[in-house]
Write a protein that binds this DNA or RNA. Structure first.
Length: 240
DNA sequence: GCGACAG
DNA sequence: ATCTTGTCGC
């Protein structure tokens, strides 16, 4: 499968950071490659939406990643792939990408066809340095990406209305001046259920990121992409 | 220094 | 993320 990336994934993987200072430097170096000026695929487009997720086994120091491709319109599973690796980085808030991306990339490249949109567990622009997991994966692959997280991280928001589809801005905590910058949105995907937190990764705007998420979460709180990838990486870990 | 903190 | 059974409710 071909990736439309500007830089070499392999080079980045070869120079993967081993400590916090190096990791932050990588984020600062790659941050300028994020593209926020493209609207991204139309909601309802003909193509595939791919969900990625990872599961860990601390005992064995093993990580399993899954990539599941769904038909963007019907949400039927059309392809899936997994990869197993060693945990290469500790969990540090703000540096999640360095823990997850190497194995995720391997699973992603094992898919038969190039994804049209990738949905990540976590954040993209909603990040202390505006370079969360989804943006990082987007820049490395060149693919349109969005982040859908289950928690608001360090960001502030007012609860959206109770109806499915209601949104409210996710605001940077202590931005100087007014309310703070909108770094993402809290999106109510199911009536009366806790919202999910959507942010742009790469080559998709926030409006469409939310529209795709809502479409993917027609039946449950979380997008079907996330549910499918979560289920698959757990199974991959169990049989690894 | 203390607390908070995606997965 | 992960440790973990039953249980309340639609």
């Amino acid at each position: 499968m071909d990736l439309p990336g500007t830089l070499s994934c392999d080079d980045e993987l070869r120079h993967w950071p081993t400590d916090e200072a190096q990791a932050r430097a990588v984020q600062d170096r790659l941050r300028p490659y994020v593209r926020l000026d493209e609207p991204g695929p139309q909601p309802g487009f003909a193509g595939t939406v791919v969900g990625v997720d990872v599961a860990y086994d601390d005992e064995r120091d093993v990580v399993a990643a899954a990539a599941v491709a769904l038909d963007a319109r019907t949400l039927a599973v059309v392809d899936e792939a997994t990869a197993v690796g060693r945990v290469s980085f500790p969990y540090i808030p703000g540096l999640l990408a360095f823990r997850e991306i190497p194995t995720v990339l391997e699973a992603l490249t094992r898919l038969t066809h190039t994804p049209d949109l990738v949905v990540c567990d976590g954040y993209g622009q909603a990040h202390p340095r505006r370079f969360g997991l989804a943006s990082h994966l987007g820049v490395l692959t060149g693919l349109p990406t969005i982040g859908v997280a289950k928690n608001p991280f360090t960001f502030r928001y007012e609860p959206p209305g109770p109806e499915r589809g209601a949104t409210s801005p996710l605001l940077d905590r202590d931005a100087p001046g007014d309310d703070g910058e909108e770094v993402g949105r809290a999106l109510r995907t199911q009536k009366g259920v806790k919202p999910v937190f959507v942010s742009v990764g790469h080559r998709v705007d926030l409006e469409r990121a939310c529209a795709h998420t809502l479409h993917l979460a027609a039946a449950y709180r979380l997008p079907e992409t996330t549910r499918a990838a979560d289920s698959l990486c757990r199974r991959a870990l169990a049989s690894a």
